[in-house]
Amino acid sequence: MRWCPSCCENYWSPSDFGNCRKCYEEANKTKEELKHENDDLKAKVDFLSLPLGLHSPSFSDVVLVASDDGLGHSDAIPVPIPAHRAVLASRSPVFRAMLENEMEESLSGTIKLGDVSCDALHSFVHYLYSAEASLDEGMAIDLLVMAEKYQVKHLKTYCEKYKVSKLVWENALMNFAFARQYNAKILEKAALLLIMDNMDKLSKCEVYIELVEKDPRLVVEIYEAYLSMHSQG
Rank of each mutant, 00 (worst) to 15 (best):
V164H: 04
Y208E: 00
V65N: 03
L99P: 04
A66T: 09
L107R: 15
R91D: 01
E137A: 14
A131W: 12
M146N: 07
R91K: 15
P14H: 12
G70T: 11
G18K: 09
S203P: 00
A184R: 10
Y223R: 00
A83C: 04
N28W: 08
D200R: 10
D46W: 10
V164A: 12
K42H: 05
A27V: 06
K112Q: 05
M199T: 14
E210P: 03
A86T: 14
V207A: 13
K214C: 02
A86P: 03
E188T: 01
C20V: 07
V145W: 03
G109C: 01
L173F: 11
D68I: 01
E224L: 05
V116S: 04
F17S: 14
C205Q: 14
A120Y: 12
N183D: 13
G233M: 13
R91S: 03
A147T: 07
R217W: 02
D68C: 12
S67A: 06
V45H: 06
V62S: 10
H84C: 12
A140S: 12
A97M: 04
H55K: 15
K189F: 12
G114I: 02
R21P: 00
F95R: 15
M139V: 11
Y129N: 08
C23L: 07
S106V: 03
S92W: 04
A191L: 05
D142M: 10
G70M: 06
H122M: 03
G70K: 12
K29L: 11
D115E: 12
G53C: 03
P51Y: 10
N101W: 00
A89N: 06
P216W: 09
Q232N: 09
V207P: 00
I222V: 15
V219C: 04
P93S: 09
C20W: 13
E104Q: 07
I209K: 15
L193R: 11
S58C: 04
A97H: 03
H230E: 05
H55C: 05
L41E: 08
S60W: 04
C23S: 03
L107C: 05
H55P: 01
E102Q: 09
M139T: 14
K42P: 00
D16C: 12
K163A: 13
S13G: 02
E206L: 13
N183M: 07
I195N: 11
L54N: 01
D61T: 07
Y24S: 13
H154G: 00
H73T: 07
S228H: 11
M103K: 13
I186R: 10
E25R: 11
K189D: 09
K112G: 01
I77W: 06
K201E: 14
L121W: 09
P57M: 07
V94H: 11
C205P: 03
E206C: 04
A147L: 12
H154V: 05
W12H: 14
